[in-house]
Design a protein around this nucleic acid. Structure first.
Lengths: 237, 237
DNA sequence: TTGGCTTAATGGTCAGACCAATTATGTAAA
DNA sequence: TTTACATAATTGGTCTGACCATTAAGCCAA
């Protein structure tokens, strides 16, 4: 069996991180326990405090430890990891990027709906029907989180019916990227059930047009549907 | 209703990270560009080098920047890492997708042309004019390779005028993929001239519509322009 | 026991120095 | 003029020591 050793980085901070993570992995350091103070770590590791601090600040960013001024540094429960995707992290704090992605997603969605109406097979229709019914159920139950999920799934089931892999992948990517931002605005959405009542009809229009194979109606319905959400975003930006 | 704002960290390094990431999100800092040196950043931000280094080392860990001793710190192409590379991988494993990619590119181009007509600034117009003239020159000289290059540059200069960096990025991606795909699956240079036949007037129509700010005409001109190339591709497939 | 004060320890920030790698520059040789 | 190489300047990496801000612990007096 090939048993590789982890590559020893030349960077001091990386070496420290490796050591501490190994201790956590071996159970020597357990969640909730305090790490040695920075100054004592310097002594034991024979490195400067700057290097120790760099290692700790990186582990803090990774969610491995938490620091408390005047108290110390504790090992975290690994389970509560934060967003690890750097791009999503940037998007989360950028209204401009969120708008850009939303616009891109809308462009794709409108054209995908048109193409789906032209190309959907019987198998596609079955999947779209399932997704549509799930969306309606979630809407009736007023479960906002589930509505967001089933809404995405509904639009993706339509994108799937275009049989354009690149288009499908791109739409899925855009949806993934703004997912976190949408969830953060969830509390806002929860207070506007009226807005969601309207788009029940919009979803129905899209659904029917695609199933009936009416490309023009499908494109129109999709455009109309997304107009509302975009306006809402622009007002907040 | 309790509507909490995201906590703005008091930590100096976090503030620096937010600033730099915001610059990336707005396109002020672009992939491949160099960040200011640590010492200059200290000056501009009025903080110690330790804080700047902490911010940079965290961003390095996130994969947002890369550092090179003696050279500098460069901005990574996270969009490529997160979106383009995986797509490229999918395409490699899916056989011939030239039509899918082309369709996707056309969708983006048509809508980008419309948006550009609405949003182009004077600076954008200058760039578009330059790109258009280069295209005309290449066309007059019947230099096929240069025509392909200037054609891409022309459409990208329009995409740039949308001021949607995600859209711009995606279009650039598609154009690169098409060139690869056509090159692999067809006799690139030998067959391309037919696809470029007599579209000087079409380019002119696009150019004029965008410069005049006529969104509907721009979209129409773009649709008309791309139709020919797509049909040509389909006939070959 | 309780309240408030002092003290010590901790993480956060700063300043300045030197090392190591790379690039830019300028000079001498071909 | 061009090329080659030594030198200087710049950049990220590391170290040292100091001070600030916060917290916990200890202490003493009411």
């Amino acid at each position: 069996m090939q048993n590789f050793e982890p590559v020893k980085s030349t960077r001091v901070a990386d070496i420290i991180i490796d050591q501490i993570q190994a201790m956590i992995a071996k159970g020597i350091l357990k969640a909730g326990e305090k790490l040695l103070s920075e100054r004592k770590l310097c002594e034991q590791l024979n490195v400067s405090r700057a290097s120790v601090r760099e290692a700790i600040s990186i582990m803090k960013d990774r969610g491995i430890v938490e620091t408390y001024r005047g108290n110390g540094t504790i090992i975290c429960d690994i389970f509560k990891k934060r967003i690890s995707d750097p791009l999503e992290n940037i998007i989360k704090n950028s209204g401009e990027l969120t708008l850009d992605i939303t616009e891109m997603r809308n462009i794709l969605d409108v054209k995908a709906t048109r193409l789906a109406a032209k190309r959907r097979t019987n198998a596609d229709i079955v999947q779209i029907e399932i997704a549509y019914k799930n969306l309606v159920d979630a809407s009736n139950n007023k479960d906002v989180r589930l509505m967001i999920e089933t809404d995405a799934a509904f639009h993706l089931s339509i994108a799937e019916a275009t049989h354009n892999i690149v288009l499908l992948y791109s739409m899925r990517s855009m949806i993934e990227l703004i997912e976190h931002s949408i969830y953060e605005h969830m509390n806002y959405l929860e207070n506007m059930p009226e807005g969601f009542k309207d788009n029940a009809k919009e979803h129905e229009a899209i659904y029917l047009a695609v199933v009936n194979g009416d490309a023009d109606a499908a494109e129109l319905a999709s455009e109309n549907h997304l107009k509302h959400f975009t306006e809402y975003l622009k007002n907040r930006a």
